[in-house]
């Protein structure tokens, strides 16, 4: 049985919790308010969001790896994964890279502005299988966003997991997200971290090279470790291949994929991947579930 991670938070006394999914219109977004904005770097911002409906907000929960559909006026919707952990309720975070029309509009938002959201959707990371294992996180660029949700979640249930190691690579030092968080947790001895950038530059005195290079210093003991990998498709491929060569079974390498999506509920067809839909069969997959690593 799944541990009771998914239990709804108790509503405030005197207020009856509303049923979350009673006869609802699957396509109608709910109103949510931007509470706080953190500028991670030039292109990436993290938005803390609450639902306008206080009761709904209290009752809302999700799991790391899941995503929601974010609405922006005149821009339609886009799938965005949670970068916060449901173990810290009250609000949730979306970490968004300025990449197209919708995400550029999101970057213009100010605290107090309203967005539309529906979800949560998709399969989360397999926490039941991850328990009692060492965790090896390998992230590239904005791929850290969904992994941050997992890391924070695991820190809140720290005793359930063995060593937690985070390897994080970016193009330049300016591209890192959540670096303060990660370094703080490393400082407290909760996790170990390694950072790398693609090319050497003046303001960087750390590791230089691809994130796969960081794996050279990591001892992989198959059976006791689960690897969680997220980043650009080609990075996922090379990290997965490297881990497979080190003897890690494909079922212990977990990744989360990104696709164009319109509905989030397995109908519109846009996120097809072989016989699967990324939105409902994923976005979290083990490498053993993927037909090949070339078409990521």
């Amino acid at each position: 049985m799944m541990r009771n991670y998914n239990s709804r938070q108790t509503a405030k006394p005197g207020k009856k919790p509303v049923p979350l999914f009673a006869d609802r219109n699957a396509y109608l977004p709910l109103r949510a308010i931007i509470k706080d904005i953190v500028e991670e770097n030039e292109l990436v911002k993290t938005f803390a969001v609450v639902f306008e409906d206080e009761i709904y907000n209290t009752n809302f929960t999700y799991l790391p790896g899941q995503f929601l559909m974010l609405s922006m006026p005149h821009c339609g919707e886009a799938p965005i994964s949670f970068s916060s952990s449901p173990s810290r309720p009250g609000s949730f975070s979306l970490t968004i890279r300025k990449a197209g029309k919708l995400t550029s509009a999101v970057h213009e938002l100010q605290p107090g502005d309203m967005i539309g959201v529906r979800g949560p959707y998709g399969k989360p990371f397999p926490f039941e299988e991850m328990r009692r294992h060492d965790l090896l996180f390998v992230a590239g660029g904005i791929g850290m966003a969904p992994l941050r949700s997992v890391i924070e979640f695991c820190l809140d249930y720290r005793a359930d997991y063995g060593d937690i190691k985070v390897l994080y690579g970016c193009k330049t030092p300016a591209d890192f997200c959540f670096r303060q968080d990660l370094e703080k947790w490393a400082g407290e001895g909760l996790i170990t971290t390694r950072f790398t950038v693609d090319a050497a530059c003046e303001e960087w005195n750390g590791c230089v090279g691809l994130v796969t290079d960081l794996l050279d210093d990591v001892t992989i003991s198959a059976g006791s470790v689960k690897a969680l990998v997220c980043g650009p498709g080609v990075m996922i491929r090379f990290v997965a291949e490297r881990l497979l060569r080190s003897g890690l079974p494909a079922g212990d390498i977990i990744t989360t994929l990104e696709r164009h999506m319109k509905c989030g509920i397995g109908v519109c067809g846009h996120c097809h991947y072989d016989s699967r839909m990324i939105c409902t069969d994923g976005p979290v997959f083990t490498v053993s579930q993927l037909p090949d690593l070339e078409s990521l």
């Binding site: 109608l28 109103r31 609405s71 006026p73 107090g112 502005d113 309203m114 539309g116």
Partner: peptide, 20 residues
């Protein structure tokens, strides 16, 4: 049409209101 939406930038102290 699945839904219509309204954006109001002035209603709430300059904050964007957005409804479906």
């Amino acid at each position: 049409t699945l839904c219509s939406y309204i954006v109001d930038k002035k209603l709430n102290k300059g904050k964007m209101e957005y409804s479906f």
